[in-house]
């Protein structure tokens, strides 16, 4: 464990909790893509099946359980408890265009052609694009609530910190996982446009709105 991975994980946790609290406090999931949240629930489920087969550390196990629990709680709030506030008309990204190619890629490019390994690879590829329905929704409505932008910033920060973590581990631990690194870099690039808007607008006290 290094400081970049730890702060990355905590930033990820902060993002998840910010989103849960936003929905809970406002009793509304307006502006939130339920599709992205379903994709994240699938990501955690397929990646953390190793909870049943291998133990790494108490930290590792507890974080996995918390991530999975929060992901399903978020999906429950959006599609069940606060369903009336869910903006399905604007959440129109076609997720099959992500899931099908990502599934095919996981079968073709992986470290080992075994059931658990392919599911793990699938989760890595899927996570890299799972935020697209959310970004698509914001570009479609042309705006995002400030709290939603904090959520996205924490998610993007988590990805950026993981890249620093990989550079660290490459030099100091002789560790690298090419699949995770390539997918992680792709994922971080997807946030760049948002980072720009976050710094130039939200941090200066303005609402995030896009020109029509």
């Amino acid at each position: 464990m290094n400081i970049f991975r730890l702060t990355g994980d905590l930033s990820h946790l902060a993002a998840i909790i910010i989103l849960l609290l936003k929905i809970w406090k406002t009793r509304s999931c307006a502006g939130i893509s339920g599709k992205s949240q379903i994709l994240f629930a699938i990501v955690f489920t397929t990646r953390y099946l190793d909870l049943l087969s291998s133990f790494i550390s108490l930290y590792n196990t507890s974080m996995k359980v918390i991530y999975i629990g929060c992901a399903y709680a978020t999906v429950y709030l959006i599609y069940m408890k606060f369903r009336a506030t869910y903006d399905g008309n604007h959440d129109s990204f076609r997720v099959e265009f992500l899931v099908v190619p990502v599934g095919g890629l996981a079968v073709l490019i992986n470290h080992d052609f075994s059931f658990l390994e392919i599911l793990w690879t699938f989760s890595i590829y899927l996570e890299s694009v799972a935020i697209l329905p959310q970004l698509f929704m914001i570009s479609k409505t042309g705006e995002a609530e400030t709290i939603t932008t904090h959520y996205l910033f924490c998610l993007g920060l988590y990805r950026a910190l993981y890249i620093v973590n990989w550079i660290w581990r490459y030099y100091f631990e002789a560790f690298f996982d090419l699949i995770a690194i390539v997918a992680g870099v792709v994922q971080t690039i997807l946030y760049c446009d948002f980072f720009y808007l976050y710094v130039t607008k939200v941090l200066k006290g303005k609402k995030l709105s896009l020109p029509a």
């Binding site: 991975r5 994980d9 990820h12 190793d50 291998s54 790494i56 550390s57 590792n60 974080m63 996995k64 991530y67 470290h111 793990w120 993981y162 973590n165 631990e173 002789a174 560790f175 690298f176 996982d177 090419l178 699949i179 995770a180």
Partner: peptide, 10 residues
């Protein structure tokens, strides 16, 4: 050698 893919990350 390099340690590839030990899956200790989240």
């Amino acid at each position: 050698g390099f340690n590839i893919n030990p899956k200790d990350e989240l």
